[in-house]
């Protein structure tokens, strides 16, 4: 299975990757070889097999509904380039 350059650009945009034209062609080839492997997997008869959601054969452990976290805003915000009035500031996003 092969991918068009437009499909590659679309996938790159969804993943927020910036590719130049040379990279688009290269990535298209690499992705096509991965899809080739997927095609091989698809050919396997999986009728009656429950899709695996996790490699461990175990069930999710649950925790009690208790508040155990305390406020560490100041520490956490030291990692942020910009904060104001307790908010993280990011480039403007407008609907």
């Amino acid at each position: 299975m092969s991918l068009t350059n437009d499909q590659v650009r679309g996938i790159a945009r969804l993943a927020r990757l910036s590719l130049d034209e040379a990279e688009v062609a290269e990535v298209a080839d690499k992705l096509a070889s991965i899809l080739g492997m997927v095609d091989q997997l698809q050919a396997t008869d999986t009728a009656g097999v429950v899709p695996m959601a996790h490699p461990l054969d175990a069930a999710q452990q649950l925790r009690a509904d208790e508040v155990i976290e305390t406020d560490h805003r100041e520490e956490y915000q030291r990692n942020a380039p910009l904060t104001e009035q307790g908010l993280y500031l990011v480039p403007r996003v407008v609907e």
Binding site: E66, V67, E69, R73, Y76, Q77, G86, L87
Partner: peptide, 21 residues
Amino acid sequence: RSKIFSGSATTYGAAPNTQAS
């Protein structure tokens, strides 16, 4: 009382980012 995947409080109207673990 706490969030779906963490032990942070869910109280409405707290000061910004004080309930974010």
